[in-house]
Design a protein around this nucleic acid. Structure first.
Lengths: 369, 369
DNA sequence: CTGAAAGCGCTAACAT
DNA sequence: ATGTTAGCGCTTTCAG
């Protein structure tokens, strides 16, 4: 009887060891690339692995290593970014909390309508993949969903979390740190939390936009802001307004949007009512800039001849738009990768201090301004 | 000495058992909701769980149950959907194979530029979540990446795979079934494989489009097709052409696209050169329809007055477009959810036959046609 | 440089 | 109805 066709189900270390005529420990060593293994034996083991079609069992390994090589990629927020009304946003109450069982679907559907998240995923996956790690996608838009994320991590289903919040007063970062779970954020939290994050120098980006518009000769300039209860919204406005003021234009008409195309359209309509003669608009993101372009065109204004439009982010919407949007580039993929790097670094030395890495935006000139 | 503060790291079943004064097995039973447990003891255990802050270790559980409650959500394809040239698509060779180390980034970046994938994710997550399961995101655009997916599953890192291919001759489904791994596909594979899948009745959708255009009074109708080496591309064309023929319009100008906005623009340009007088175009997806609208406008044609445009999918691009696109709705979220349901069903009884579920499309009338 | 053996934390027979 | 016990497959001291 040959001694290698005896395994019933999937082969285990034991099977490989038997086939190679060595101990389990030795097989484990060559598989994990531990040095101090006779090259001859290494070769024998490799052959046995190939021959048996062995694949190490992750659960068994995790049980002893305490690592899963999975990380949770969680999109967190209140799920009402562009809801019927946004009056409840700043209040502590979470409007979706009492929603229907699948109220999450509205949130998840909306999240991916924004090209931003696809870029985050891209950046994370491309950093993780060569390292043999994988992202588990999660959404945390209700307190129930947030508990699930915490449980997931506490069960050791993932080694840490990468969280991108769409909402200002997101409680998730706090829950995570309170539970002592490794996490890194995309964007500075509204309330200071001792946690690492990556972010963009939003103000610098807004400054670039202001300078470009002015250099272009525009003089009646307005801005469509992002939601003013999130740092990105606030800073893009502050940076823009400060620069305009410094360059001699202290009064800037503003209309608040919610980072959605729809809200950008509405904001543009409002702006046009009050300031029909404006010659430029800075939208705090590309989606709103696209919305603004649509409305401008409907009002018979040409972009950029009559009104120059500049966006922010350099998302796919910017290049897909007609005319292609001049915009401020946010290196989302690189930032997401850095977020992953920070998390893995933290996993290696759990006692390291929280760090933040701020990226610089860049002006991308296309046709809209 | 109190007997409950003795645990060093995270509490285990043992700790809870001790705190509750019962055996591990009993704790396990109440945690897993197994019946036959005295209500009084149940309560005691629950209290002990709460008190110790116990969270079951997933790896340990997986090791014995052989389940992870994770499923791989893999986007598969060749990564050259809109590359500089698509001449190599039909050949067996994979152009990205010899690419740079991070050639995957181009693929991943592009994948999420299409709103389609966000919808798939949404559908999958919303089905999985209430069932305590989670998707692990993976890309399989090179043979190396495909091997990784197979390994991942063979290691028991996930219970099965949900795969959506962007490419015709995708080898992944075959690899998966050869390895006996549970998988369900989005869309029928180009080559028959014994594997479950969900799909859309593409021909019916195309028929709806043709009928709508004709009913509208259009007579000089062209179509921008999808890639003709994938079933969806073929069937949407076949359904359209057959219906047009049946209704008395046997000759339809066609231009092939690649399901990207850019390719839709190029196709529209070509069509306009040959048929400057056309009065309607059916684009095989919304992204290409958007591209067509842009080009038409640049040529001074109004949509829908001069040229009616109808898309396919009812993606976010359709409603965001100006004018909003009349299109054929593909219930992607529902299809993705069904895909997940089929996989879980298969997990329950591994010997079930492969099934396919075909969804019906619907006409959505907006402003473009 | 290699092997023996002790668990990691949990579930599932099997006893009681 | 509850407790006892035997692993699940792997890594990792500790001997040799």
């Amino acid at each position: 009887m040959t001694d290698d066709l005896r395994s019933a189900g999937t082969p285990t270390l034991e099977d490989v060891a038997r086939a190679a005529g060595v101990s389990r420990a030795t097989v484990s060593r060559v598989i994990n690339g531990v040095r101090n293994v006779d090259p001859v034996i290494q070769e024998a083991v490799r052959r046995a692995v190939a021959h048996t079609g062995y694949a190490p069992n992750r659960a068994a390994r995790s049980l002893v290593t305490r690592r899963t090589d999975a990380i949770a990629l969680v999109v967190s927020g209140a799920g009402v970014e562009s809801g019927p009304a946004d009056s409840a946003r700043a209040s502590g109450a979470d409007p979706t909390e009492a929603g229907e069982p699948d109220s999450g679907s509205a949130f998840t559907a909306q999240v991916f309508a924004d090209p931003f998240f696809g870029r985050v995923v891209t950046g994370v996956v491309n950093y993780l993949r060569p390292r043999g790690m994988h992202p588990v996608l999660m959404f945390a838009e209700t307190s129930r969903a947030r508990e699930d994320v915490v449980s997931f991590l506490r069960q050791g289903s993932a080694d840490g979390a990468l969280v991108v919040s769409t909402h200002a007063e997101d409680p998730l970062p706090g829950l995570l740190t309170d539970a002592g779970l490794p996490a890194v954020l995309y964007a500075r939290p509204a309330r200071p939390v001792r946690i690492s994050y990556v972010d963009l120098a939003h103000q610098d980006g807004a400054r670039l936009a202001a300078e470009h518009l002015l250099a272009r000769g525009c003089r009646r300039i307005a801005t469509i802001t992002g939601p003013l209860d999130v740092p990105a919204g606030q800073e893009r406005l502050a940076g823009f307004r400060d620069t305009m003021t410094r360059l001699g234009h202290p009064y800037i008409p503003i209309a608040e949007g919610q980072f959605t195309q729809e809200s950008g359209e509405a904001a543009m309509e409002r702006l046009l009512v009050e300031h029909p003669d404006l010659d430029a608009v800075f939208a705090a993101n590309d989606l709103m800039a696209v919305g603004a372009c649509h409305v401008l065109r409907e009002h018979g204004k040409r972009v950029p001849e009559d009104v120059a439009v500049i966006g922010f982010d350099d998302s796919s919407a910017a290049s897909a738009c007609r005319p292609p949007l001049t915009t401020i580039r946010q290196p989302v993929e690189a930032m997401a990768a850095e977020m992953a790097r920070l998390l893995i670094e933290r996993l290696a030395k759990p006692d390291g201090a929280a760090t933040s890495v701020i990226f610089e935006p860049a002006l991308v000139v296309r046709d809209s301004a």
